[in-house]
Design a protein around this nucleic acid. Structure first.
Lengths: 242, 242
DNA sequence: CGACAAGTTGAAAAGCATCAAAGTAGGTGG
DNA sequence: CCACCTACTTTGATGCTTTTCAACTTGTCG
């Protein structure tokens, strides 16, 4: 799963895939809406998400909470907290979730013996920075409806990773309250914005199933430039495959 | 300079400092308010900031722009674009700036031969993710005055890195327009917010010199929990110093 | 079927944007 | 060194987006 994410940057050798597999220890299962790790908890491990959706959120001192990331299968969870003594974000399962815990001690071997894999993980971290920059721009500079459009396109994009073309229809397990927390708006406003997109036939919702009817209009609304991930950068490919 | 940032995580060997020094090629100088690299430009190098302030900003398709990072001396610039074909952010000098350009090809040696240094850079990237998460929470969940308070404390904190206690007075080279772009508000509103903090004697401004008169009140306003960076994590320290 | 979470609606107020215009500082050339 | 120019700052008036509060409806699951 995790190697899917990494292979957007470069193909991995069998050896490297095996090393990745060994990184993970036990598989943990969580029910929907359970806390995997709370902001302030000690940082003993990071996680590789196998299946299900997980949010990362940041609690302010006044009780408000901002969701800073919606993690999809294949993502590495909790890595920003590696730089911290105590976790900087709360990880919460949205759906039932399966993940592999990666003990910090196994990172030593990774960095020591697998430079190419390390470089791919490094690129992943930089990619995550870019995702956050996009969100920051969306929330800082555009109104609620544009933020929502950008969120939907982001999810469709990431769910379509590895597929020929972009999905226009997918299961959206987030409640309106959770989406509001992602977009930095209130639940009430989230509701009105959602209805507006439905009324204008830009999206369609049938229970959990969301359909993007007019992706061109969504893209225009979102104001987001197209992403252009690097593939097989020369400096990375020059590294020995270990 | 760059090693100062890295050594918040772990002390570096003489060898490693030398390797870091070799990474950088030519030193470039820029006048204030010049573009170092524009969003969309090819990514041939990244940069280590020696002196001066630089902003990283993200342009939306409608012409709006969000500043996603204020870089201070010692920072690594432009790294998120490593994951991209064309640069994802525009780097602009705020003051006169000196920086060392690091060609991507030199990253190969770094990852291949210096696992400890690589790990420190990896932690830096994770730390930057956390900074972005903080900003996102600040902009998504709090009002303009709180965002401004958080920005001022962030700058004071980072300018005080390595010092015994936090600076309460420093040169602030940003214009109100630039600060507004960081906070996701208009220049007009930025001005009113600034005056409000001055009127209530929470800050003081004399030309470029800014003084934080009441940091406790600023901290309360900002709603930001205290940061707690990790120091000498076991998994990193277990790596051979190369 | 009953309880509780999620979604929906309306009215009023707050926060911020927008527009327009005037005032101020810093830097440059004459 | 002064005059001017330009970019930055400040101010006021107005309106839109979003929040807040409160109630009500619908859906979901034990």
């Amino acid at each position: 799963m995790l190697f899917n994410r990494l292979e957007t940057f470069t193909e991995l050798s069998e050896q490297e895939r095996i090393c990745l597999g060994r990184l993970g220890g036990t598989i943990h299962q969580y029910a929907a809406r359970s806390v995997i790790r709370r902001q302030g908890d000690p940082v003993d491990e990071i996680y590789a998400l196998q299946s299900g959706w997980v949010t990362g959120s940041f609690d302010l001192k006044d009780g408000r909470r901002q969701t800073v990331k919606v993690h999809l299968p294949g993502d590495m969870l909790g890595a920003p907290s590696l730089a911290m003594e105590r976790a900087g974000e709360t990880l919460t399962s949205i759906t039932p979730v399966a993940l592999r815990a990666i003990r910090l001690s196994s990172l030593t071997t990774l960095f020591q013996d697998h430079p190419r894999l390390t470089a791919a993980l490094f690129l992943c971290a930089q990619q995550e920075r870019f995702f956050l920059m996009e969100r920051l721009a969306s929330i800082g500079q555009s109104r609620a409806i544009s933020r929502f459009a950008a969120l939907l396109l982001d999810l469709a994009d990431r769910l379509s990773m590895g597929l020929a073309d972009r999905l226009t229809s997918f299961e959206l397990p987030l409640t309106q309250q959770e989406m509001a927390e992602i977009l930095g708006i209130t639940t009430v406003h989230m509701n009105r914005i959602g209805q507006q997109l439905i009324r204008t036939s830009i999206i369609q919702r049938d229970h959990r199933l969301l359909t993007l009817l007019d992706t061109a209009e969504l893209a225009k609304l979102s104001c987001m430039p197209a992403r252009n991930w690097v593939h097989r950068p020369a400096w990375l490919n020059a590294l020995a495959p270990a």
